[in-house]
Design a protein around this nucleic acid. Structure first.
Lengths: 190, 190
DNA sequence: ACACGAGTAGACCGATTTGTCTACCATGAC
DNA sequence: GTCATGGTAGACAAATCGGTCTACTCGTGT
């Protein structure tokens, strides 16, 4: 991949993540990145294609980071704790590779492109599906009964999304820790 | 309140809720509502003031609806079930007064105005606080130990926000029912 | 030697943005 | 009768939007 292309994606991500997609103009991205307009339109067919590339980029970064954090923990309840400890680090800006927390990019973009059939919204749904798959494989390392795996996965996903929303909308920096305690209580009772 | 003012707020709400704030121009609101531009700027100092009024309007509608649904249920676990049954009705467009589901307006607006200090974002945080207060009073009607009231409230809020996010981003129409089962399991173990 | 792809700088286009302004009308209070 | 208020219709302004285009430079592969 061209270095200019990557630089555009990285710059666009930072701006979109902070201010939202509609609030950031093409020209702002160009000035910030120091790239010529023609170059942008050489790599991307338009703004929407750039946003899509940003979503793919962020999905890769985020999933790689989360997967590493989950794999580093011992199987079982420790992995459940690792999930929410990772979120806690994210919310409190202790993860350099994820940049300063401004909520979940995919939730934010879904808010701006509310139609479920929109390509950008669908990309966001795909990301959430990928994360759910990571969580499901986490659940399978616990002693939870096979019949409850789907339910436990759903529950952890609900708590995860809830924590992200609480952290972003309310500014609750302890949201991940609250979710962790709830998750522990829940998993023990399954 | 002037009828024109209310009509503007109502029209603006529908457009903002469907398409997002930045994606809807003042002119579109004027055409849709059939109100003159001068009248809009007579009632509101600018677009931001209109958005703020829309948030207040939606907060009143939503909280009044939820409060009614919760009060109609018997104390205890029935109220917990009522909370998520209400959400289920909302997600599946069975509540006319809330209009077709497009996620939570306050989460969506927070996504577009990511800065926590922004007046619009703060209004969103206030709404979430109001809903949390309703949920806390719900929790107090259960047999949960007084020392756990805060924890139970947090847990239900997490599940509620998670369900809204799952329903909107993933298009999961059963999100509220999943959250209900999780909540029941959780409350029983407290 | 030369062609070509990637890149720069920036003028330019039409459309759209928020917001202001003039001119006019209807109604009710005093 | 008169005057303020709330309203309509719409021209207008200044800025910005996404996107196209020309003219030019630089480095690499053949």
């Amino acid at each position: 991949m061209s270095s200019k292309r990557l630089h555009l994606i990285s710059t666009a991500f930072n701006l979109f993540y902070q201010k939202g997609v509609h609030a950031v103009g093409i020209n702002e991205i160009l000035v910030e990145s120091g790239v010529a307009k023609k170059t942008l339109y050489h790599h991307f067919s338009g703004k929407e294609a750039l946003v899509l590339a940003v979503l793919v980029y962020r999905d890769e970064c985020f999933c790689a980071w989360l997967k590493e954090r989950l794999e580093a923990a011992n199987p079982g309840m420790a992995k459940v704790e690792a999930l929410f400890d990772a979120l806690d680090d994210w919310f409190n800006n202790r993860v350099d590779t994820l940049f300063a927390f401004h909520g979940c990019l995919f939730i934010n973009v879904s808010a701006e492109f509310g139609d479920l059939t929109h390509p950008l919204h669908q990309q966001c749904a795909m990301h959430k599906q990928s994360v759910a798959a990571l969580i499901e494989s986490l659940v399978k390392t616990t002693s939870i009964d096979a019949a409850c795996i789907n339910m436990a996965t759903d529950a952890l996903c609900l708590l995860k999304e809830g924590a992200i929303t609480l952290a972003h909308v309310q500014g609750d920096r302890k949201a991940a820790l609250k979710a962790k305690e709830t998750a522990k209580l829940l998993i023990r009772s399954m």
